[in-house]
Write a protein that binds this DNA or RNA. Structure first.
Lengths: 347, 347
DNA sequence: GTGAAAGCGCTAACAC
DNA sequence: GTGTTAGCGCTTTCAC
């Protein structure tokens, strides 16, 4: 182990508590003493031992982040966001990759009780209710990301999926579309449900009943399901056929676009398509996919900000942060206007 | 804070050191006492505090991992490998993302001195020699990944780049190619240099002097540089033109393939191409790119294994681990044989 | 303004 | 086999 405050104390000729105070900026310490202590610390290459500090005042200056899989770009970007905020605030980031394995998840959550982290950000597709609820007895702050549990009183950060879907629909309405179809996501996914709700709401606001008009097509977030939905659409008589599709994620949109191309239907001229997520490929497909972008890094940052505020006691009451999406307009839904810039613009 | 060994001691009616011993499996403790202690611990929901433990015996059961960027799939896969080994061995993983920023790098390395980690795996393109060397005064084990520093006596894990290039060349030789060109990587990258060395060696072993024959084309790991190299190749008189290309990474190979296509040169019939890295896109381009795969997750695992062995004192002397690559044969270099399976096979 | 002393949770050397 | 005690590095009362 490196030099300790006692070494500095010996060096300077004061007590170790004086050294501690000097290093922590206690105003009672004289400028002269502080100066000498800081110099000695520098000279000896002193670095505070965090186990000691942690033991003394119960903080370890680490936050934990639980995610299923780091290979998934979505999660990687969350990590990026969290880490930036954490470092800046002087916290270390401890990463727990669960691979969606329940046992790994449990083990990660256990770490809270070990005093290894001052707080935890949890992003798990379906975190076991029991296991999370059990965490509350430690008073360690917890922030749930994406899949929140407001009923249980956990702090949460999530995306305004409803609003995102409405952005997509409203954009299409603005382009003059009347029959706007939707390809849904799986019912068990809460974000898919929220997006569907937003879609319904925006369509109804335009005076159309999407269910009565048969505009809702089942999907499950896969390319395959997008393609199949298109197959069903084109069997409809022309006057009942939609002129635009809102897919609940980009994979579905991609599947739909490819299948449309195979049927010789030109996007966007004969059919507009909007996705959701703004996956990397959305920029590269042809035509570029208009889609609803989730502010992924910002989610991570917001979660870290909230968690650290809780740790510091700056936030006392329950809080939920909802971030808005952003519609990224590319070529896949056409436009009445001339296209000023080559590819994309934000709304 | 949760219950401590003192609470258990009170509950059971023994001293706290007896509790500690019982929990740690000290053989001197009677079965009856141990039983009672374990029960009480369970009942109270006891979890050892790691700051306390860390302070007492100098281990914190955490390892640090320094990487430039988590969004890069290469690094994400390393994280994945490291984390698996770490968790299994009971170590937490503390992640430091430097974004190739020297100050972040320094800050991360500082953590060693804070006693926050028992060891550190460092993967930085060009880690400042000074800063790393300064780390040696702490006796904390360090493993360098990819860019090793054997001269400085640091443990390291790296890839057999030389051997990988030889695999590529030998495969082409086996297919009957005589004039096998190479598109190099940037000179400052050690892996690029190693691959070039392997290429030269394998070609020479076949009785050809690649330099005299003008088979070496400058590149810099970018698509652009691959395309430009192809431009230079096709200006050569037919008898001096290569029949196969070994690109020092997949991006270069991709650039070369695209440019060949534009010139109407058919891969693999008129020109064979081999890449290096096995990036995700290598499977999806047409024709599928034969390439040299780096065992990325295994690199992470090997580094973690080595580090933990060091921490445990199981390894005393300097050690360097070199992992072999694997040639992934797809369609881009043709084959005399009929293709049995649709896409790929391993050598 | 500074020192002495206690204590955070745990391990381990030393008694008995 | 178990209790007592000291100590890991640090913060923080309480004295003066």
């Amino acid at each position: 182990m490196g030099p300790t405050i006692k070494d500095i104390a010996k060096e300077v000729g004061v007590s170790h508590s004086t050294v501690s105070r000097a290093l922590n900026g206690d105003p009672r310490i004289s400028a002269a003493t502080r100066q000498k202590v800081l110099e000695a610390a520098e000279r000896l290459g002193y670095q505070p031992n965090l186990s000691g500090r942690g033991l003394a005042h119960g903080k370890v200056f680490s936050i934990g982040l639980v995610i299923p899989d780091i290979l998934e770009p979505f999660f990687a970007r969350v990590v990026n966001g969290v880490s930036q905020v954490a470092y800046r605030a002087g916290f270390n980031l401890i990463l727990y990759l669960t691979h969606a394995d329940r046992r790994m998840e449990m083990a990660a959550l256990q770490q809270i009780g070990h005093g290894r982290v001052d707080g935890m950000i949890i992003m798990a597709r379906k975190v076991g209710r029991q296991s999370v609820l059990a965490l509350r007895r430690h008073k360690v702050p917890i922030v749930l990301l994406i899949e929140t549990m407001p009923e249980a009183g956990f702090d949460g950060v999530r995306v305004n999926n409803e609003g995102g879907a409405m952005q997509a629909v409203n954009h299409l309405l603005g382009l003059g579309h009347k029959r706007i179809a939707c390809i849904t996501g799986p019912r068990h996914a809460s974000d898919a449900r929220e997006r569907l709700r937003g879609y319904r709401q925006a369509i109804r606001a335009a005076g159309v009943d999407p269910d009565a008009e048969g505009l809702i097509f089942k999907g499950n977030f896969t390319e395959q399901s997008g393609a199949e939905a298109v197959d069903r659409m084109i069997q409809l008589p022309p006057d009942r056929r939609p002129t635009a599709i809102v897919a609940m994620n980009d994979a579905t949109a991609l599947g739909a676009m490819n299948r449309l191309a195979r049927h010789g239907i030109v996007v966007p001229d004969e059919m507009a398509v909007v996705g959701f997520d703004d996956m990397p490929f959305a920029r590269f497909v042809h035509p570029g996919l208009t889609t609803v972008r989730q502010p992924i890094e910002e989610l991570g940052k917001a979660a870290a900000d909230l968690l650290i505020a809780r740790i510091r006691g700056e936030v006392k009451e329950y809080r939920e942060v909802v971030l808005n999406t952003q519609l990224i307009v590319r070529e896949s839904c056409g436009s009445g206007r001339a296209r000023s810039h080559p590819s994309e613009k934000e709304c």
